[in-house]
Design a protein around this nucleic acid. Structure first.
Length: 318
RNA sequence: ACGGGUGUAGCUCAACUGGUAGAGUGGCGGUCUCCAAAACCGUAGGCUGUGGGUUCAAAUCCUACCACCCGUG
């Protein structure tokens, strides 16, 4: 219903998603460059300026080709979450659409992309004290304790959550404790209307090829100094941002728990698993149109993009 | 060449004195409205190197062969 109200004159957000290492970055730059617009990153780890190598963030040269937003704009010491990203991205898009008819969002963090496209219920920012208390409860009394509290404070949610997943329980309970209201009553599960059209594209490669690319990229990261980058961050390893593939495995090595060789193998394995989870997430969303990383030509022929190119031509002629 | 050892799931290994094979890991699939590159769940893989033999019954015992490892030459 809502989509029907949109016309080709409304601004367009093109989303480029896909598993890690599939080639989203060059694809996005090519597309944004052709449409002479800017890129919004939706990669929850490329936000952090201290993590350049291990997150395969766009290179200096790539960043110079097209204006990027939300790349290296945070420090690992800052707390950030999807809700803030939604707000930041919407504010930015509002600005971008003053100058451009099209914007490109590139990233692999499904939850973050969905927050921009569909919205996320607005809940109070987590209270670090409550969060720590709950973590304490978990480590001392186990997941049972979390379940027991959830049965009392939000029996409805207890029916639908994965009761084996501490992260889910922690989240629900921190909201219950902070608001004094059952978490489930604050979840609307409704998509929000956006003042722009959205075109969702996802990139894919045959599994064996993707895995090969992942392995190679990890090797390249190490050549480029991932070891040194991680070593420098080692003292801050407890920060959440660093609980990330490519760093945690090396931290284990620095700790003396594993060999370097093992750590590298583990980085590759965990990256593959991450890629699989990303694919599962994006495949579930029927809105995505799937392309190969070298299909940029076909994408530019899509009616939405064609129109944009036409507009550029007209502008240039004037 | 001789002596010893090992051959079990893609990989690393289990299976007491014979009772028709298990685990970790990887693979595959999925969940997920906020610390998400996180957290969690579910599955499929083995004619036990090959051929004989003993036995009601063999991964397990005997035998031949093959492969690999160690030692001596």
């Amino acid at each position: 219903m809502t989509a029907i109200q949109m016309t080709f004159n409304d601004p367009l957000l093109v989303v480029i998603a896909g598993p890690t290492a599939v080639g989203k970055t060059p694809f996005g730059i090519e597309l944004a460059g052709t449409c002479s617009t800017e890129i919004i990153s939706a990669d929850s780890r490329q936000f952090y300026r201290e993590m350049k190598i291990g997150t395969a963030a766009p290179s200096r040269e790539e960043l110079a080709k097209v204006p990027h937003h939300f790349v290296h704009h945070l420090s690992i010491h800052e707390t950030y979450n999807v809700s803030r990203f939604e707000a930041d991205a919407l504010a930015l898009l509002d600005n971008l659409f003053d100058k451009h008819r099209i914007a490109v969002m590139v990233g692999g963090s499904g939850l973050y992309i969905d927050a921009v496209c569909r919205g996320i219920d607005h809940l109070p920012d987590p209270d670090p004290v409550i969060r720590n208390d709950l973590k304490e409860l978990l480590s001392v009394s186990g997941i049972e304790a979390l379940r027991d509290e959830l049965y009392k404070s939000d029996p409805e949610y207890a029916k639908v959550v994965d009761l084996a997943n501490p992260a889910r329980l922690l989240r629900a309970l921190e909201v219950c404790r902070a608001t004094g209201v059952p978490y489930s009553t604050l979840r609307s599960n409704k998509s929000k209307q956006r003042p722009f059209r959205i075109l969702k594209l996802a990139l894919e490669l045959p599994r064996d090829l993707l895995y090969e690319r992942i392995d190679n990229r990890v090797d390249r990261m190490l050549e480029n100094g991932l070891f040194e980058e991680a070593l420098a961050l080692y003292p801050q390893r407890h920060l959440n941002a660093l609980n990330t593939v490519g760093y945690r495995e090396l931290f284990d090595h620095f700790e003396g728990l594993t060999s370097l060789e093992y750590a590298v193998t583990k980085i590759k394995t965990n990256s593959r698993r991450y890629a699989k989870r990303q694919l599962t997430w994006f495949k579930k969303d029927q809105d995505y149109k799937w392309f190969m990383p070298d299909d940029i030509g076909r994408v530019l022929e899509l009616p939405e993009c064609k129109m944009q190119k036409a507009n550029i031509k007209i502008k240039n002629q004037l």
